[in-house]
Design a protein around this nucleic acid. Sequence first.
DNA 1: ATGCCCCGTGTAAGCGCTTACAATTAAGAT
DNA 2: ATCTTAATTGTAAGCGCTTACACGGGGCAT
Lengths: 349, 349
Amino acid sequence: MVKPSLQAIAEQVGVSTATVSRALNDRAGVHPDTRAEILRIARELGYTPSVAAKSLATARTFTLGLVTYQQQPQPISSYHTHIVQGIDLEARQRGYHVITTFVDGEMMSDALRMPIFTESRVDGLILVGPALEASFIIQLYTSHVPILLVDNLLSETNIDAIVCDNVGGTYEITQHLIDVHGLHKLVFFSGPKDWFSSRERRLGYEQALAEIGESPRVIYMPDTTVNMGSKALLQALDHYPDMQGIVAVNDATAVGAIRACKENGIDVPHQLAVVGFDNVAWGPLHEPPLTTVRMFKQELGIQAARHLIDMIERGPSPGFQLRLGTELIIRESCGCPPSEEMVFPDQGS
Amino acid sequence: MVKPSLQAIAEQVGVSTATVSRALNDRAGVHPDTRAEILRIARELGYTPSVAAKSLATARTFTLGLVTYQQQPQPISSYHTHIVQGIDLEARQRGYHVITTFVDGEMMSDALRMPIFTESRVDGLILVGPALEASFIIQLYTSHVPILLVDNLLSETNIDAIVCDNVGGTYEITQHLIDVHGLHKLVFFSGPKDWFSSRERRLGYEQALAEIGESPRVIYMPDTTVNMGSKALLQALDHYPDMQGIVAVNDATAVGAIRACKENGIDVPHQLAVVGFDNVAWGPLHEPPLTTVRMFKQELGIQAARHLIDMIERGPSPGFQLRLGTELIIRESCGCPPSEEMVFPDQGS
DNA sequence: ATGCCCCGTGTAAGCGCTTACAATTAAGAT
DNA sequence: ATCTTAATTGTAAGCGCTTACACGGGGCAT
C-alpha cells in the first residue's frame, strides 16, 4: 500500500492537483462543495502531505532550530529541557519539527558554520539562555533567518524576545525575606555581569533593598553552577560576616551555597536563609527544601515557538517582547515552616 | 546571494549535475581529478545540499523519530534527556535530524495515528524506556519503519535493542551491601512486573541474595516515582520489620524511601541502607548522598542512533542486541563514609 | 585492424508539491 | 443579445536532487 499523494486525491475527486492543493491549504477560490469533497476523500485515503515535496516547492523547511549554550562536559540542564518540551509541543501542533544544537563557548565563532545555520536548513531560530555571546546573536540576526531570544534580551537591538519577569520575581522573594523573616542584611549571588537574567534579577533584589534603605551587596560569579555557589558563599562569609540571607541568582548556586554552609557548620535557614530562582525539580527534595521563584519554563517554550512561527508565516514584528510572570515558591530554606503537601516531579526509568 | 545548488557547481566545473551528485555522494565511477575539482568548487561556493530535494528524490527523510512514554503531568525526566542528548549528537553527525514524540498511556492506541508514525515522516524510530506497551511496539514493528528499542527488550520478538546491564549493575550494588556492609535482610523495590528493566534488576538482586542463601523480598510498585518510593517503604516496614537495606529499582524511588524514613525517624544509612539505580544528577546533593548504579545514558543514545542509522542505510539486522556496562557509584546512603571529591552536574539559567 | 568491454560522463525522467497564468463558465450590466 | 467581470478550475513549469539508461572513447585480446 503506497502512500497516497495529491495526485491520488485529484483522480478520485476528478479535479486537478492544483485544486486539491488549494483546498487542502485553505486557500481561497475553491468551490465549497469541491473543497468538502476533497477533504472527505483526503481523510478517507489517509492522506498526509510529503514534507519534503512541500519544502522543495515552497523553499521552507518547516523546521525550527533551537540553539543553546552548553558548557561542554555538562549535561543538558533541566532548565532547558522544560523549555524544549514547550517548544516541541507547540511546534508539532503547527506542523514544524525542532532540531537542537548546542553551542560551546570556545566555538561560538565557528558555530555559524554549523549546518543548522547554513541557510535553508531551518525557517527560524530560537536562541535560549543568557550565555550566548551578543556578537554571535547579532551575526545571526543580520543574516537571513528570523530569530527569537528566550530568557535573554539584547537591549541595543530590537531582536524579538520572550523573557520571564526576573525583576519582579527576585523583588518578591527578597521582600519575602525582609517582610516575613525580618532579614535585612542580604547578599545577592549574581551570574556574570553581562548575563541578562543576572542583571535583571539583581535589579529586583536591589529594588527591594532600596525600599528599606539597605545598600546592596553583590557577589559576581563567572558561572552559575553548584560549585560556584559554594565558592561564592565562602567569599560572602569573608566580605559580609553579618549577613542574614542569600538571594541566589538560581537554584544551583543556592544549593551550592547551602552545601558550603553545612561544611562550615552554618545552619540553614536559622543562621542564614538561602533562596534561589528556577524551581528545579529536586528543590522540594533538598534539605532544607528550597524556597525559590518559579519560572514557567514550558510556557516560555510554547510562547517562543508560537511567536517564531508567527514571524515565519506572517512576517517580522521587530521589537516584539513578551514577559511572563513568575510565582514565589515558599519552602523551608527561607525559614518558613514545613508545609504539608509536596509534589515530586521527575520519575525514573 | 542565493544558495548555490548542484547546478551551480556543475556549471563552474563544466560537468553535468549527475556527475556532481555522484562526486559529492562518494559514489563510484567519477574520475579522481573530476571529483577533486568538484569538491574544491563545492567548498569554495559554500555548497550545502538541499535536504528537501534529497528527501524528495530518495524517498528518505533523514529524520529519526524518538518515542518516549510520558506520564502526562510529569515533566520530561532527566533520564530521557541524557539519552536524547546522545541520540542527537550522533544523529547530527550522520546528517539526520531527530524529532521527539511523547506518548501517553491513555492514548497508546491512538498514538499510531500521530503524524510521526504516518509513513514517511521518519526513516526510523527509537523507542525509549520500559513503559511503552508491547502491543504498541509490535504494531509499529510490523508496519514499515525500522525500529529500535532502548532500555527495553521484547524477548518474544527479535526487535533490535540496546540496553544496559541491569542484572550486573543490581547484582553488584546488592553485593556491595552484603559484602562491605554485612547486610543480609534486603528488600527490593521493583517497578511494574512487566517492565523490562525492573525484571532484570530484580534478577540481579535475587542472584546476589541467592549466593548467601537469603530469600528475596520484593515490593512491586505501579510506577517508579518519588512518592511511590515513600509508599513502598511504609509497606516494607509492615512486611519486613527486620530489614536492613533497600535496593530500589531507581533513584527516584530510593529518594522517596529515604524521605519516608526521615518522616518515621529512621536513620539512613545507619538503621537502614538505601541504594538506587540511575545516577541522577542531584544524587550527590541528596542527604545522604545516594549510592547508586550509573548507566551510561548518553552512550546509550549514541549507540542507539548509530545502530538505527546503520539499519536504515544498510538494511535490517534482526535480533541485534547491544548491552552496555554499568558502574557502581558509592556514596553515603549505603553506609560508606563520605568521600572527598564530588561532582555536581546541572547548571542553571 | 576489428570487436568488446569498461570507465567516465551526459541525458532526462521523475520525486510530490506549489503557483503564475490561462481557460472556462456563469452571472450581471448594458 | 452582447460584453464585462468574477469565480472556479486547469495547465504546466519549476523547486534541487537522484538515477536508470545511453553514449563515446580508450585499452585489450584477437
